[in-house]
Amino acid sequence: MTTVEDTPRVAERGLPVGGVQRKRGAALEQAILQAAFDELSRVGYTAFSVEAVAARARTGKASIYRRWATKQDLVWDALTAVLPSPADCGLVERIPDSVTTVQALYDIARTIASVITSPAGDVIRTIKCEAASDPELAKLVDERFQAPRRAAMLALLRRGVERGEVRPDAATQLVADVLPAVLSHRVIMLRERLGEREIRQIMEQVVIPLVEAR
């Protein structure tokens, strides 16, 4: 007979506790990642706790720590599971020759706009705001989130230089930050809807004049 003292061991084996079948393996990992994202959405990064995630996922903290050594690792894997990768945004290593730099930038702008106006975008914005007063978190945000996307954008601009579509002095990290920064500003600070018209205005008035070869 299962006693109260046996309950943690029973849960670890994935056996029913209180009539509920516990998840295991990949199903448990997915449940933990979803619980982590839900908790981030509710309380933000500062108040985020592994204990709360464990409760949401109906598992123990030990199950989480066996898979993720730190809170930061869990947070970023949860975000990675819902946020598009640089490649999903159109920032791929090899772009077909038929696609111009401007066309690629339009596609990237549309994807970024859809992300930052989504629930996942709400979470990453909250984390970025909290990073303003947390240097360690700020470093993590840049290393795990912004740096890979900046590098991919820079590679796109360098490709444009090789094709004669982008000015050589526009292929810089500073310029690579401009498009996502402008899009984020319009949503976060100005509460603006980012439809096709707004994206076209940003591209035609800011991005294209900034990068195009003259």
Rank of each mutant, 00 (worst) to 15 (best):
E5F: 10
T7I: 13
P8C: 06
P8G: 05
A11C: 06
E12W: 05
E12R: 04
V17K: 02
V20H: 14
V20C: 12
R22F: 03
K23G: 09
A27Y: 04
L28S: 06
L28H: 03
Q30S: 13
A31C: 09
A31L: 01
S41K: 09
S41Y: 07
V43L: 07
G44V: 05
T46E: 10
A47H: 14
S49N: 06
E51Y: 03
V53K: 00
A55H: 05
A62F: 04
R67F: 02
A69K: 03
A69M: 12
A69L: 13
A69G: 13
V75P: 07
D77K: 09
A78W: 01
T80P: 01
T80D: 15
E93Q: 10
R94E: 15
V99H: 10
Y106Q: 11
Y106D: 10
D107T: 09
I108F: 05
I108L: 03
A109D: 04
T111R: 14
A113S: 07
S114K: 07
S118N: 08
A120L: 00
V123R: 07
I127D: 02
S133T: 12
S133E: 11
S133H: 09
K139L: 11
L140C: 11
L140G: 04
A147T: 15
P148G: 00
A151R: 02
G160W: 03
E162C: 14
R163H: 14
D169T: 08
D169M: 11
V178E: 07
A181S: 14
A181Y: 04
V182I: 06
V182C: 01
L183I: 07
S184A: 13
S184T: 15
H185P: 09
R186N: 15
V187L: 05
E192A: 12
R193S: 09
L194T: 00
E204S: 08
I208Y: 05
V211R: 00
A213R: 14
